[in-house]
Simulated scan of single mutants.
Amino acid sequence: MGKVLVLNASYEPLNITSWRRAVILLIKGKAEQVEHNGKLVYDKFPLPTVIRLRHYVRVPYKEIPLTRRNILHRDSHSCQYCGYTGDELTLDHVLPRSRGGEDTWENIVTACVRCNVKKGSRTPKEANMILRRPPHRPHSGLYFEVTKHIKSGVHQEWQKYVIGI
């Protein structure tokens, strides 16, 4: 029947759970319903799409690894210069490594082979190429999972609870 976004008491996203687990949390009084999709679990009990825990849960900060897969996912598997979305995607350093550019979330973008070769060892400004979106560090590991659901169009109501999408 669907997935449910779980918010902390402070309205920050914690995780995504099954609708069954969400209903159990609601029945036990551990959470409250914030959003629903109009479908009913049973009479007069709407199926939740977003719930909020009644008590704050402290979550330790977890660094998101800088990997090719995560960068491709952050950039929606598309070239950040021309928008190409095929199989021939590479990673490009905005400030080239030959000029001191480092491997950081803020310096690496997804680029097609053609744009990467065209840019070469120059900055986007020097190559007269414009980035569609500036590179950024994802806010949380949950960011990837939530963006997948939002971009698929299934859970548009989640967007107002997530920063940076």
Rank of each mutant, 00 (worst) to 15 (best):
N70Y: 02
T147Y: 09
K44R: 15
I130L: 15
M129N: 02
R52M: 03
V146I: 09
H149V: 11
K39H: 15
Q80W: 02
R69V: 01
K151W: 07
G153Q: 02
F45C: 05
G101P: 01
H93C: 03
I27A: 10
I71D: 00
C82Y: 03
P46E: 02
P13R: 03
L142Q: 09
K3Y: 07
V50Q: 04
L14F: 01
E88S: 13
C115Q: 05
K119S: 06
N70I: 00
P48A: 03
S98V: 10
I165G: 10
P124Y: 02
T104G: 03
I71Q: 00
Q156T: 15
N116L: 06
L5E: 06
N8H: 04
R69E: 05
Q159T: 09
K44A: 12
G86C: 05
K3I: 12
T104H: 02
G164M: 02
T67S: 06
S76G: 09
K28C: 10
A111R: 08
V57G: 06
V50F: 09
K119I: 02
G164D: 07
L89K: 02
I108L: 10
N37V: 06
K3S: 13
H149W: 15
P46L: 06
G164S: 04
G29E: 12
A31V: 09
I163N: 14
R21V: 10
V23H: 11
L25A: 07
N37W: 10
K125N: 11
L25P: 07
P60L: 08
T85A: 12
G120S: 08
V34Y: 03
S78V: 08
L66N: 05
H55Y: 15
E12H: 10
P65I: 08
P138S: 06
R74G: 00
T104S: 11
S140G: 00
C112A: 06
E32N: 08
P96T: 07
H93I: 04
Y61Q: 13
G86N: 02
D75L: 00
Y81D: 09
V113H: 11
